[in-house]
Design a protein around this nucleic acid. Structure first.
Lengths: 180, 180
DNA sequence: TTAAACATGTAAGCTGTTACATGATTTA
DNA sequence: TAAATCATGTAACAGCTTACATGTTTAA
């Protein structure tokens, strides 16, 4: 399925960047729904270059440091567009370790469960707040054809996801507290 | 991290079953937040057996078919309990291909985007409805110490996740339609 | 009697993580 | 001048998927 391939092509379709820049982007907005380590990115870039989907220019930074400025080729753009058009079926849903834990949580005493739930709630609340802070920079919905539109909807999605999770955790805490 | 290991231990802690049964369970309630193919399950069971965390009895079904009824050992239970107690930090969030697509969707014409969003909405609505149908069997919140409690909260979580996704997709459709 | 479901495994390959490995440039 | 950041790669291993491989039992 090679999602990383298309994530890289998508980012390079926004503007040229180095492998290092890509790795940073995978820790920014996009990180809410995809991430990758630099080791995987450099490997994938090499492959994409061999496939003719990306190309690069070597730029000298300072005296000797070589930076590879990658950009997407026409073939890459076509491939990306084909992928974006595909209407795939939703498959198995995403894996979530904490919910697996909660699935088996009746094996835990109620007090421990509440402690775990409270800890998760705190963490997700913090993340939600950070995301909401970021979203304040949008005074209105960006133009649908701009890159910022992608940033904006993914940010909204992440906020909603975190809020939904917090709501569910609250419910669980309620159930557990009723049993005390 | 070996989540599959603990998912198997958790299921066997509920009751003994075969590898085949486990594979089926990974396509039932638990499937909303974890899944695994039989090839991976048989491999993991073998490993868990070698580690002394599970054991099995061979049962003859019919004339010759040997079934391995797996059960969790005391060591397995201890290991599972230790894992359930762990309060892990939420790390990178789960990967989601559709949202990656939407992140780059400004490269697509608005009509195509709406079509994709509508298709996803339909699929998630269908899944939500199925989940809600299943949840009707719960007239009240099951006892927190019963296996059904795990089933119940995971079902609720899945419904909330699907509903949240539908709400987000609706927003996106709204943004796109405003641009037409 | 035949199709669906039950039942168990292995092998090859892809995806992703952790650790190894190196060095330059910028900022405090 | 030291620490943080920039910058690029490889190797070993873990996790997961797809395909291969085989055979039995049950229900229509």
């Amino acid at each position: 399925m090679r999602v990383l391939k298309y994530a890289i092509l998508g980012l390079l379709n926004r503007h040229t960047m180095t492998g290092y820049d890509l790795a940073k982007d995978f820790n920014y907005e996009l990180a809410e729904f995809w991430h990758a380590k630099h080791s995987q990115i450099y490997t994938e870039l090499k492959k994409l270059y061999e496939e003719g989907l990306v190309t690069y220019d070597i730029e000298i930074s300072g005296e000797i440091l070589e930076k590879k400025q990658y950009s997407i080729t026409e073939a890459g753009k076509e491939d990306l567009l084909r992928w974006l058009h595909k209407d795939e079926l939703i498959g198995k849903t995403a894996k979530d370790v904490f919910r697996v834990r909660m699935y088996f949580s009746n094996f835990l005493d109620v007090e421990s469960r509440i402690k775990l739930l409270e800890s998760q709630k705190m963490q997700h609340t913090k993340r939600r707040n950070t995301l909401m802070k970021t979203s304040e920079q949008y005074s209105e919905v960006p133009d649908v054809s701009s890159d910022r539109f992608g940033d904006f909807i993914i940010l909204e999605s992440a906020i909603m996801r975190e809020q939904g999770l917090i709501d569910w955790i609250d419910k669980c805490i309620g159930y557990c507290k009723n049993a005390l």
